[in-house]
Write a protein that binds this DNA or RNA. Sequence first.
DNA 1: TCTTTTGTTTAATTAAGTTTGAACATACTG
DNA 2: CAGTATGTTCAAACTTAATTAAACAAAAGA
Lengths: 152, 152
Amino acid sequence: MTQSIEETRSEFIEKIGVMAQTDGLPRIAGRMLGLFVWDVEAIAFGDLAEQLQVSRGSISTATRILEERRLIKRVAKPGDRQDYFQLAENPYAKMLDYYAETLGHTQAEITDTIEKIPADEAVIRARVTAYADFYKSMAAALTKISKDLDRT
Amino acid sequence: MTQSIEETRSEFIEKIGVMAQTDGLPRIAGRMLGLFVWDVEAIAFGDLAEQLQVSRGSISTATRILEERRLIKRVAKPGDRQDYFQLAENPYAKMLDYYAETLGHTQAEITDTIEKIPADEAVIRARVTAYADFYKSMAAALTKISKDLDRT
DNA sequence: TCTTTTGTTTAATTAAGTTTGAACATACTG
DNA sequence: CAGTATGTTCAAACTTAATTAAACAAAAGA
């Protein structure tokens, strides 16, 4: 089966949109991320709405989310009033940092619980601690990868 | 603020229920996981429904999900017709394996796309490849932690 | 100043996922 | 065998999240 590069691009964008839902991104934000991974050139706010066939409101929301996660950046273009967007530098390191941060919060929540467990409940303490450690080691591992990527 | 261990347990269970939603588990399955982390003893199907105050149908669905992820195991108790459940051995290694597997699928999907990109589109190829590599390294890192945990 | 463009916000709608409850199948008990 | 207990399935109800469309605010041009 042969397909044009436009078809491949469009397929890729939709694919990332679906997969993004797995890690808590709205579908539109995921499609947008796919688009930015593919395209080097910055894209105008209005073009995003047209290319992805969604409302401007959705673009506003999705760009905000991706900016919060530091995956894209908003840039200006001389001679155009519109906002332009493109993939951030080291986006994958940023993504890892975000995951690590989330895992860290989870670990902290569990640690809060551990402190409330009576000292004589050694078994429960041990079990909940093992759970917290799990999040701790995951966060540490992702942070490590992030730093490796940053050195590139 | 002082609270009984029952209150702490209940708070923990609800907390895990909420956090579980972050990684794609239904709330009830999350609460169940929290319960199993806390309690050493196996718990009967019917007791789960009562303790978590949900329908038997929900227990059936949630146990299925947690079994599929290999986080809990179903055991029998002599003298009781009910199914009993408890946390699996090395549950956190299993959890990591599950994540790694998911990431691997994602990477494979992206790799499928890469193969469709014309060879002369070097920039696009490089960008999409970087994205695939990101998933690859994450999967590898989690697999590594999993093996470390297994050695325990 | 008046109009247009641009991006955000909010309320309403739509879509997606979760939970329940009833029906069902199976296995056990007396 | 009849009756009860157990766990699963599935359609419907419910809940939550995503998306749109319209109202709005700010800035730019005419």
